[in-house]
């Protein structure tokens, strides 16, 4: 440690630290300050109003807590689904398989599509007379057809489904990279011991993939918490405000010109993300160390 200190003096940090403070920390703190004001585009005077914006957010007359709930629900559901499906796909296309590179490319492809294109395409697919319902009718499953973007809880599940379809390819590639780092010796030894597939998965693959789990979970969580594009393009938060998430509401509040309230929601999101992110990284790092 002493040698390292001699080689890298502390002031080497200052440049990076300065940039970090000015570009990240300071704007966040300024944002925090504005969340305690009535800043709006209708008035040049910005007044300090204490916790009023936060009181509005947590008020039972408003729906902001439900939007936070929607965001957290989307985050949890898509994180689980993307992880499970991404891992499953990685295990399949990681095998000696005919045309495996082609399969990998096809699964990864949705990731590179823009959300706008994806959203518009799926709007058409999920329309009452769209591809999905036509497909179901072809097989005599008329009772399964529905208005996917408006009926019951289906708007949520439509968003989850499309988001998972689009994102699992990316998660799969991270797991694939993780799988490649696992020495084949472990599996050979396990084969000699007569281990079956689930045993190898439970005792070799999953423990050695923990660093990959750490990365994918953080990526999925951060993505899920800041989700906006797919909701905005697909349902605009509707019908009504049923599928509204935090960033779609923040966007709307900024559009109306309610900066103070919008910033309060952003700041709240900041805190939620820091807390969740910190504990997840800590938890997963502990697991990796163990």
């Amino acid at each position: 440690m002493n040698i390292q200190k001699k080689i890298y003096p502390a002031y080497f940090l200052f440049g990076a630290l300065l940039l970090y403070v000015f570009l990240y920390v300071l704007p966040s703190l300024v944002g925090m300050y504005y969340s305690f004001t009535d800043w709006s585009r209708f008035d040049d005077t910005v007044r300090f109003i204490g916790w009023d914006n936060y009181k509005s957010i947590f008020s039972s007359d408003e729906n902001y807590l439900r939007y936070i709930g929607n965001t957290l629900q989307l985050t949890v559901v898509t994180t689980i689904l993307k992880t499970v499906l991404g891992l499953g796909l990685a295990l399949i296309v990681g095998q000696k398989l005919w045309g495996k590179n082609f399969h990998r490319a096809v699964i990864f492809l949705p990731t590179v599509l823009s959300f706008l294109i994806t959203g518009l395409t799926f709007q058409s697919i999920l329309a009452p007379s769209g591809l999905l319902n036509s497909f179901l009718r072809t097989f005599g499953l008329d009772s399964w057809t529905r208005n996917w973007l408006y009926e019951g809880n289906w708007p949520f599940w439509s968003i989850y489904g499309i988001d998972v379809w689009k994102g699992m390819g990316y998660i799969m590639t991270i797991f694939l990279a993780g799988l490649m780092t696992i020495s084949k010796d472990y599996y050979e030894a396990a084969d000699i011991d007569g281990a079956h597939f689930w045993g190898k998965l439970r005792y070799i693959t999953l423990p050695l993939l923990l660093p990959s789990f750490a990365v994918t979970t953080v990526l999925n969580l951060v993505y899920g918490l800041r989700v906006f594009d797919i909701v905005y393009v697909l349902t605009q938060g509707g019908p009504g405000d049923q599928t509204e998430v935090l960033y779609s509401v923040i966007f709307k509040l900024f559009g109306y010109g309610y900066y103070g309230l919008g910033t309060a929601l952003s700041s709240l999101m900041f805190v939620i993300m820091v807390v969740i992110g910190y504990f997840i990284i800590r938890l997963l790092n502990k697991e990796v160390e163990a």
Binding site: Y24, P27, S28, Y247, F251, F254, S266, G277, Y278
Partner: peptide
């Protein structure tokens, strides 16, 4: 050190995400 780094990484990621929220791109169909 690892804890501090974890925390810093976490804050950095979130700050980048939050800062990114401020800019709005045109969404011309």
């Amino acid at each position: 050190i690892r804890k501090a780094l974890s925390m810093a990484t976490c804050v950095l990621t979130v700050a980048a995400v939050t800062a990114g929220c401020g800019s709005t791109n045109g969404n011309n169909i």
